[in-house]
Structure formats: structure tokens, C-alpha cells
Design a protein around this nucleic acid. Sequence first.
DNA 1: AATTTTAATATGTAGTACATAAGTATTTAA
DNA 2: TTAAATACTTATGTACTACATATTAAAATT
Lengths: 231, 231
Amino acid sequence: MGIGNLHIDIEKVSYKTMADEVEMKLLEYLKKKSFKPGDALPKEMELTEALGVSRNVLREALSRLRMLGMIETKKRRGMVLSSPDILGSLERVMDPLIIDDATLQDIFELRLTLEMGLADILYIRKTKKDIEELEKIALSQKTTSAKQNFRIKHEVEFHGKIYQMTGNRTMQRFQTMLLPIFGHLVNEEKVPIVGKVSHIDLVNLLKNGTREQFREGMRKHLEHHFQKLKK
Amino acid sequence: MGIGNLHIDIEKVSYKTMADEVEMKLLEYLKKKSFKPGDALPKEMELTEALGVSRNVLREALSRLRMLGMIETKKRRGMVLSSPDILGSLERVMDPLIIDDATLQDIFELRLTLEMGLADILYIRKTKKDIEELEKIALSQKTTSAKQNFRIKHEVEFHGKIYQMTGNRTMQRFQTMLLPIFGHLVNEEKVPIVGKVSHIDLVNLLKNGTREQFREGMRKHLEHHFQKLKK
DNA sequence: AATTTTAATATGTAGTACATAAGTATTTAA
DNA sequence: TTAAATACTTATGTACTACATATTAAAATT
């Protein structure tokens, strides 16, 4: 850990509100007792007693778990454990204006990594229908203007379709969440750089080429992004 | 959307607590006003007045934002916007026992995708020192027992080092979070299957081989995982 | 002027009260 | 006797008050 962040970290561990503590204990409790989704949880009053805190504090902690989708509550019925929406909370904070620069860069690289790793699953799951749809998207972009905002829109559409073709909803959603970050960083480019491999080229590779060829195509398509990565 | 989930979704939108609403409005407010990290936010009482809710409800919403790392509060000083820890909330819910099976599978595939996409960044960032360390890890595993839990521990150590070599802290942390999921699914395998490309092979590829060769090695190393993916 | 003391203030915690929804039991009517 | 309507009970949701605590700002003291 860098010494520069020391004071921040120390404050973070030393100053914990009771809600923080209760949240932690509840998470621990839920995982330790190996509750399964659907299981009923103790009532608020029972928890306040067990934890020795006011209902107020407890509810702040419960509110967090509710946000995470870990619990659901109904009046009179009480609380039940549920399967959390793992990306829900991520969605809330994915704002390029709030996230620090280092993390933004990390996210940018994460997306590049995913993009390069897609080929394997793509070649397992791709269907004729999907490729046709992808081709339609690629062709529709051939004629349109080269303005910056259009270019980005096309990128989003095309690559979004590729993620969709993986059949992996989580991955697809994840990518959608990364888009604002990607757009934010790419928007800072003064001169739009076009890769040597176009969308149409990628479609053709997907049609006739091997997994490896497609991957190399994708690499060339993203080459200008990779060239900007710091060593 | 499948009809099977309809009633759930309808309930989710129709039954919103005021804390849900306030959380939404606050997030909107923070993003719209384009506050920057460090900026001071209105006091609780001002917010309760502006939103027309009790301090109780407001604090439940604020508690959520605090959990996300979006705001920090100090007594008397008030609240300030801060850069959220984007993976913090993800960390809380990453439990294979709670997450539904479809999502678990998605996460598993996500990790495979990342693993396959690592080569490009790895070949930009790899250093002699890192490779030596990785080699040390790989060699130390050669002689050890083949018991299941040991094998997984080795996998974690080796692949963890590779992620570390990317220099991408977010990616590294993300991978660490995915491990329990990975372990959970792999643990279900009755017979441990060993890939044709070992860790030592991968190290040698990293030393002398090209990006593409390394990637193909990784693919072979993970082959048995890929073979189990459903079409 | 510098230091100490005091006051003010915003968040943190506790507790009470009541609203609301949703089961549960009871009463009523056919 | 059974079905429907009614009243009751209960757990969560919301509001409000009170006070603790930490920290900044102001005042008083040396």
C-alpha cells in the first residue's frame, strides 16, 4: 500500500458507524448460516435485540442489503433472503465523472481484455442468425457519416451485438455498463482513429475464419487502443 | 422478458419504498449537478426538507450511498462526494451459495473470457522479474500433491500472479472476487482433469513464445473448462 | 498574539408513535 | 355446515423527538 493513501485507509477502518458494523454482521450471519434464497429471516425487533442496536441503525443496514438485492421484505410477512442482483450496485456507481482516473483506465483495459477474450465463447455459441444480424448492423454503418458521435454509436451497436451473441446475460450487461466509461475516454481523442480491420471484416472472419483469425482481427480492430496503453 | 418473471418485475416497480425513491433521486442529483469528488453536499436537514421525507428515510438512502463509497460524512462537517469503490459492493454479494445458478455460470464464463483476453495486456506489461516470480510459483507446484484442494490453491496462486502482472489493480481485485465462484463450480467436478498445457509450459511460452502462442497455450490449459460450456 | 475555553452545529443513535399491508381469527349469513 | 364478510393481529414503513458526539467557530483568558 502506498504511503500516500495511508491516512485515508486508517480513517476508514477506525471510524465505523454502527450501521457499518451491523451490515457486516448481517452479511456474515447470512453467509455463515448458509441460508438459501427464499428462507425467512428474523424480524427486525429480534435482530435489534440480538445486536443491541436501535431499530434505526438496524434499518440502515437492512436498507443496504435491500439495495444489494440480498433481502426482500414485505409487510407483516417479514424478510426473506433472495438472490442478489450482482451488477445492480455496480450500475449505480458507473459514472465516469465520479470514478477516479486510475480506475477509469483499469476499466478501459478490462473491456479491452474482455473483447479479446470473447472469441472462444463466441465460436461455441455463434449461430447463422446472429451472424446475419451482425452483418446487417455492420453494413448499415458503411454508408453513414463519420462524425464522432455516430462512430461511437456504431461501435456500441456492433460490439453490443457481439456480446449478446455470447448468450451470457451477465457479460452483456456488464459490457453495457462499461460503455459510458469507454465513451468518456474515447471522446477525449481529438482525431478519430480507425482500425485497419473494419466491422465488416470482423463479420467475414466470423463467417469463414477460425477462432484465432477472428481474434487477430479483433486485435487489429482495437490496435489503436492497445497502442495507447502504458507500459 | 420471460413471462415467468413478470409478477416479480411488476412488484419491483410498483412497490418502492421512499428510501428507494430518495436513493434514486440523490444519485440523479449527484450525477446531474456534476459534482466532483471532494465537493460538499447539502446537510441532512436541507435534504429532508427538499425531498419532503423524514430524516429516517433520508438516512436509509444516504446509508446506501455511503456503502457504495459515493459519499463520506463527518460529524459537524457534513457530507462530501467521493470516488466510489466500484468493486466494494460487488464484493459483498459474491457468494456462490446466494447467487443463482445461471449467474454463477455467467460469472464462470466471464472469468474464462478474461483469462483468454489477458495475453495482449500481459505482453505489454510483463517484466523479467515478474516472469521469474511466476516461474518460481509454477516450479514449486511441480512436486506437490495432487489433492483437489491443493490443486485449486495452486491454480489460484498461479493465475493470481498473472493477473497481478497486468498491473491492473481493478482487474486483479475482480479476479480475486471471482475465485470463490470458480472454486465452487470446479469443486463439483468428481475427477480432477488436468490440462495438456501446464503452468510451467505457460511460463515458458511467456518467456520465449509470442502473444498468440501464449494465448493458445492458455486455451489448452483451460480446454476442459471450455469443453463443458453449453452451446 | 497565542492558547485555552466555551459555544454552536451537523451527524450518529435511541426511542416512541402511528400508518399500512397482509395474514389470522371470528362472526355472520345462506 | 360452509362460505363470505368482518374484525383483529402483526411486521414493516414512516415520522418525529431527544440526546450523544465530534468538530469547527467563536469567545475568553493569559
